[in-house]
C-alpha cells in the first residue's frame, strides 16, 4: 500500500493520537474505565495500522522483533514482580497497600498502576507479534 498517498498521510497523522490514547487508557485504568488490556489493544491497533499501510519493514524499524519479545516477557515479569515486591515488603502477594503503609489507598493506586502497565505492555506486544506472524511476508508475495 506504499503508493497510496492519502492512506499513508492519514495513517501518519492518526497513529500518534492512537498511541497517546492507548497510553491514556492504560495510565488512567485504576481511576476510569479502561485499563491494561484495553489500552494495550489500542496501542497495538496503532502499531498494526502503521504496519498495514507502511509495511512490516518500517514497523520493525522502530519496533524490532527482539524488542517486542523482550517487552512481552517484561510485562508479565512486571506484574509478577509487583506481587513479589509486596511479599518482600512484608505483605501478601499483590497486597498493594504495603507500598505506602501510612496511606494504603495511595499504595493500592500505585500497585494497580504498575500492574496495569504490565498487562498493557504484554498485550500490546503480543498483539503486534501475532499480526507480525500472521500477515504475509512481503518478499514472498
Amino acid at each position: 500500500m506504499k503508493d497510496q498517498v492519502v492512506l499513508r498521510i492519514i495513517t501518519k497523522l492518526l497513529v500518534p493520537f492512537m498511541l497517546v490514547f492507548g497510553m491514556y487508557v492504560i495510565a488512567h485504568g485504576e481511576l476510569g474505565p479502561g485499563g491494561g488490556f484495553q489500552g494495550g489493544v489500542i496501542l497495538a491497533a496503532g502499531f498494526i495500522l502503521y504496519g498495514l499501510v507502511w509495511g512490516k519493514e518500517d514497523l520493525h524499524r522502530f519496533l524490532p522483533r527482539s524488542l517486542t519479545d523482550l517487552l512481552a516477557a517484561g510485562g508479565v515479569l512486571l506484574y509478577a514482580g509487583v506481587g513479589v515486591a509486596t511479599m518482600l515488603m512484608g505483605g501478601r502477594f499483590l497486597d498493594y497497600a504495603v507500598f505506602n503503609p501510612s496511606h494504603p489507598g495511595d499504595g493500592e493506586a500505585l500497585g494497580m498502576l504498575l500492574v496495569e502497565y504490565g498487562v498493557g505492555i504484554t498485550v500490546c506486544t503480543v498483539m503486534v507479534t501475532i499480526y507480525d506472524m500472521i500477515s504475509e511476508p512481503e518478499d514472498l508475495v
Partner: peptide, 10 residues
C-alpha cells in the same frame, strides 16, 4: 477515592 479505586471493574 478514600482508599480504594473508584472504578469497580479495575
Amino acid at each position: 477515592f478514600a482508599g480504594h479505586s473508584p472504578n469497580t471493574v479495575t
